[in-house]
Design a protein around this nucleic acid. Structure first.
Length: 973
RNA sequence: GGGUGAUUAGCUCAGUGGUAGAGCGCUUCGUUCACAUCGAAGAUGUCGGAGGUUCAAAUCCUUCAUCACCCACCA
């Protein structure tokens, strides 16, 4: 049988993966030794809507390396796969499909809609599984989990415990007082009409505008406004009948409950406790609001006076809570100005009573619609234009931008300096936009988030955060790299209540029922709630839970909790979590809190946080930039092994990796190199399935066994410490640089011209070495190694279950090591000299030697065939002195000459030797300088001093020989 | 505003106290029977600047500069 010249990845990968699956190679516990320790990893569940992107490829390659490594080591290994139901993202996909048919979600009942989502999930949810398989991920697919398995309405085949686990956790935490419902200001997404958490919004700065408006004082009252500079000198003093308010959101003026100034702001001190008028709305019903003090206003910013709109701004919300200021909600769920409730006049009248001190409740205030009738139903941005235009027309706008198209001609007039337009400004105004949603519809919704006062469910994180902090502080859970510990601590130490309710349909519906009076009944089922409620009519809370609430239970939920399962005992707590830095808060921190809160144990022992995959220019890959590299395309082009190896080799801890196709091509070449080394072995019958470590006589064979042992030790140490790139680079240089460049070349004369015994032991050694390469590479490059493993010999087991070696550095033969290093140095020197002297490749010349001692002579003789072949020389000739026109090379213990008179240029040789000498002298200078420094000899460790001395002696010897060679050249010239 | 990281060969990056490295690219040579997705040889660095600690600094400390990211953001 003849092997092809290259590995056909496209053909082999699917076949090999199928073979693994058919053999049950990835099942939990496969290849485990009796009584073996367990090793378990939970996959970060990709969104069920997702398709494999570079981040997944990176993340799962690293997991697969660890999993395959542990499995080969005979550990009881589990890689738990699964998908996340991804509330918003999934609902969005299905809603878009409906939109194409001109339908909306609300055209269907909740049950009908959910049926469609499930149908979509059943049909398309497996996409990412197949893509992970293409990458070679060795998950136990028989256990594939889903964060909504077992939910009501789930079709056949979607059964499981996850829903029950989620509900049980909610109920338990509710009854412990760790979950509560309350009216709070939350980030509201007006497009999806749901609350989202702080983590799901992104602050972006866009050019905006800050308006300054006059709020007239009640009853036409006036005061003296005095502004001073830093030294207290008066810079402005004038009578005013208004207070100036700056805002970026004029439309929210309709909901102002007060104006706040700093306690220390002398300018406004006379006004505190008085009323001012909101300069918007029908003149007959303008509302008056109190001027109060609070710590929040900064006297140096804007006018120093802040309007307080508790229902639509996070800072105002805090002020309003402190000062018992009513919070008037202005918009509906789509962020359009409210059109519900009583007419404006009625609401405004009631608001006026409240402003003047009447008692009120949050609910009552929330029911008041303070939108003037002509603005009702307008989009918030249209309302803003309208409000600005109206105020401006009244002459109450102080500063504005004359060219602002939203303002119209009235604005331009009012901005004229003579009419009190003080300064023309354009500020950067922070807006809050929705974060990018998940794949495949990755573009952000672009909708501007509206802070909205709504009833939501919260986890009181302050009650459950402590164990999550302690675990990392004490080292019970380790986080790598170190820098990410700080990120983790910082967030948890400043944690806010976690809003877990979402106004969606797709998700775990909150297990709380209300009776007519609004009393809550939290229970695991409606029957249970009914039992609590007696004969009252119950309605269930329509909200669903934040996706991260359920994925926070991923470790225990996938292992069968709340049942006390065998799996939990075997695989929990899990060993390692491998994840991207972008979900430390979303997921890692929450899993920590939740697992401790529910089962009182850590979810995992180690967290390895990896960085982002960027494009070759260092840009984040994004659809809008068009710089996305699709891992599946790359796998098609270069093979999964090359893609995996590239990601592994670039996985330096804590640093983003810039991916380029050149790099992948380079590692594809590496698979070809490995393939051809194996092909060479096969052609020379250096193959076999023996597992015993060979015990050869030939030095070169002893040497390569020691090199292999070093490599195994280094690879294990690297993987033990999550230094994936070290593992990859160690293997790369061993396979290419040591095995292919040297050992295979050394073996050729032995295999072709050696005696039978030498040939046989070399075949055996090479077979073993190649097998070791395959085994050690298998976790990183599973496909090509499995293919070669099967091609080279009949095996008892596939390589996926091959025994990971445990031999160590005791296999290094120090004499063999020294000898081969000498041989390699000699060959290097001769090659280098030949190349620089332009000696034709075809010319083999004798190697002359004057001063090689008996030991060197033996070493040379032992390896003569190899040296002759690789350095292209004829035999060794003892001479009394080198003839004229001889190229000289020096190695430890001797100098050699290549008689090339008439072929080489004497001047070139002289230049070459002088260059070598120059480098040598620089080095000698350094060495001598150090040894002449008494402090160095005193302070440096003994072995360092000793090494330096030895090195100096060697270099001095070399220097002598080089000088002699130069001397001969001089005589010649 | 707070925090974290980065700055090393033309490019992308390893390298946490002891003689500056890899891959890619570049130059020269090579059709020897594993591999041209290859081989051999070669050039290229005041390790961001400035101080300091040390016998010894790319590495530790201070400071500055530039870049990146994260968090919180003044109405």
């Amino acid at each position: 049988m003849t092997m092809d010249k290259t590995f056909n990845a496209a053909e082999a990968e699917e076949r090999l993966y199928r073979a693994w699956e058919e053999a049950g190679a990835f099942e939990a516990g496969a290849n485990a030794r009796d009584g073996a320790e367990s090793f378990s990893i939970m996959i970060p569940p990709p969104n069920v809507t997702g398709s494999l992107h570079m981040g997944h490829a990176f993340n799962n390659t690293l997991q697969d390396i660890l999993v395959r490594w542990h499995r080969m080591r005979g550990h009881d290994t589990l890689w738990q796969p699964g998908q996340d139901h991804a509330g918003i993202a999934t609902q969005m996909v299905v809603e878009r499909q409906l939109a194409e048919k001109g339908k909306r979600r609300t055209d269907f009942s909740r049950e009908e809609f959910l049926k469609k989502v499930w149908a979509w999930k059943t049909q398309s949810g497996g996409t990412i599984i197949n893509q992970l398989k293409r990458l070679g991920a060795s998950c136990d697919w028989s256990r594939n989990a889903f964060t909504m398995s077992g939910a009501p309405g789930a079709p056949a085949g979607e059964d499981g415990n996850f829903h029950d686990a989620v509900i049980k956790v909610f109920v338990e935490m509710y009854h412990k007082g760790q979950i509560y419902r309350g009216k709070r200001l939350v980030n509201w997404d007006p497009h999806f009409e749901t609350a989202i958490s702080d983590l799901e919004v992104e602050n972006v700065e866009v050019p905006g505008h800050m308006w300054h408006f006059k709020y007239p004082l009640a009853g036409g009252e006036t005061y003296t406004y005095v502004e001073r500079d830093e030294d207290g000198a008066v810079v402005l003093e004038e009578e005013r009948d208004y207070i100036s308010i700056a805002t970026t959101r004029p439309e929210t003026m309709l909901g102002d409950g007060a104006v706040a100034v700093s306690h220390e702001d002398a300018r406004y001190a006379p006004l505190v406790g008085k009323l001012c008028e909101i300069p918007v709305g029908p003149k007959a019903h303008r509302r008056l609001i109190p001027i109060i003090t609070d710590d929040y206003p900064d006297p140096d910013f804007g006018s120093g006076a802040v309007k307080i709109t508790g229902a639509h701004d996070f800072n105002d919300y805090e002020v309003a809570k402190r000062g018992n200021i009513p919070m008037y909600r202005l918009m509906d769920t789509r962020a359009q100005m409210r059109s519900d409730g009583a007419p404006y006049a009625e609401a405004a009248a009631r608001a006026q009573e409240i402003a003047e001190g009447a008692d009120f409740t949050i609910e009552e205030v929330d029911s008041l619609n303070l939108i003037p009738d002509h603005l009702r139903g307008l989009d918030r941005f249209a309302a803003r234009e309208q409000v600005v235009a109206e105020i401006t027309a009244e002459g109450l706008a102080m500063m504005t931008r004359p060219d602002d198209p939203r303002l119209g001609s009235a604005a331009q007039k009012s901005a004229a300096p003579e009419e009190g337009g003080e300064v023309i400004v354009e500020d950067l105004v922070p807006l809050i936009e929705a974060k990018p949603l998940m794949q495949p519809f990755g573009d952000r919704s672009k909708v501007v988030i509206e802070p909205m006062l709504t009833d939501q469910w919260f986890v009181d994180t302050s009650q459950i955060v402590q164990p999550a902090l302690d675990a990392v502080r004490t080292g019970e859970v380790t986080i790598l790299p170190e820098a990410d510990r700080k990120v983790y601590f910082h967030w948890l130490e400043n944690i806010e209540p976690w809003c877990i309710s979402r106004q969606l349909w797709w998700g775990h519906q909150i297990p709380v029922w209300y009776d007519e009076d609004g009393t809550q009944y939290c229970a695991t089922s409606e029957a249970e709630a009914r039992a609590l409620a007696g004969d009252k009519t119950l309605t269930r809370d329509p909200d669903v839970l934040d996706t991260w609430f359920s994925s926070g239970l991923w470790p225990i939920g996938t292992l069968g909790w709340p049942e006390d399962t065998e799996d939990l005992r075997r695989y929990f707590p899990t060993s390692v979590l491998i994840t991207g830095f972008d979900i430390i808060f979303f997921w890692v921190a929450r899993m920590m809190m939740m697992q401790y809160a529910i089962v009182g144990q850590k979810p995992f022992s180690h967290v390895y946080v990896h960085a982002l995959v960027r494009d070759e220019k260092g840009k984040k890959m994004s659809k809008s930039l068009g710089n996305v590299l699709d891992p599946l395309d790359l796998i098609d082009e270069y093979g999964a092994d090359a893609v995996r190896f590239t990601l592994t080799a670039m996985a330096a801890m804590g640093r983003d990796l810039k991916l380029s196709k050149d790099r992948i091509a380079g590692y594809r070449n590496f698979t070809t190199k490995l393939w051809n080394a194996a092909r060479f072995a096969e052609m020379n019958e250096a193959v076999g399935s023996t597992r015993a470590i060979p015990t050869p006589d030939a030095t070169v064979n002893k040497w390569i066994i020691g090199e292999t042992a070093k490599t195994r030790v280094d690879v294990d140490a690297a993987l033990e410490n999550f230094r994936f790139n070290d593992a990859a680079n160690t293997l790369y240089s061993f396979v290419w640089g040591t095995v292919c460049d040297w050992y295979v070349e050394f073996s050729k004369p032995l295999l072709m011209d050696g005696d039978d015994a030498t040939k046989a032991e070399t075949q055996a050694t090479m077979a073993w070495v190649i097998d070791q390469c395959l085994i050690l590479l298998h976790p990183i490059m599973p496909f090509v190694t499995e293919e070669l493993w099967g091609t080279l010999a009949d095996r008892q087991k596939m390589i996926v279950h091959a025994d990971w070696p445990d031999y160590g550095t005791q296999m290094i033969d120090a004499d063999a090591d020294r000898e081969m290093n000498w041989v390699i140095a000699l060959i290097d020197q001769i090659r280098s000299a030949r190349a620089q002297m332009h000696v034709p490749a075809g010319l083999h010349v004798p190697l002359l030697v004057t001063d090689l001692g008996p030991a060197g002579r033996t070493t040379f003789a032992n390896n003569e065939a190899m040296i002759r072949r690789l350095a292209r020389i004829e035999g060794l000739t003892q001479v009394d002195g080198f003839p004229k026109g001889c190229v000289t090379v020096t190695v430890e213990g001797g100098s050699f000459g290549l008689p090339l008179a008439g072929i080489i240029d004497v001047d070139e040789e002289k230049a070459r030797l002088e260059k070598t000498l120059g480098k040598l002298e620089k080095e000698l200078g350094g060495l001598r300088g150090r040894l002449n420094n008494p402090k160095f000899v005193e302070s440096a460790p003994e072995d360092v001093v000793e090494d330096t001395r030895e090195n100096l002696a060697l270099r001095e010897e070399e220097e002598k020989k080089l000088r002699a060679a130069l001397q001969r050249l001089a005589e010649l010239g």
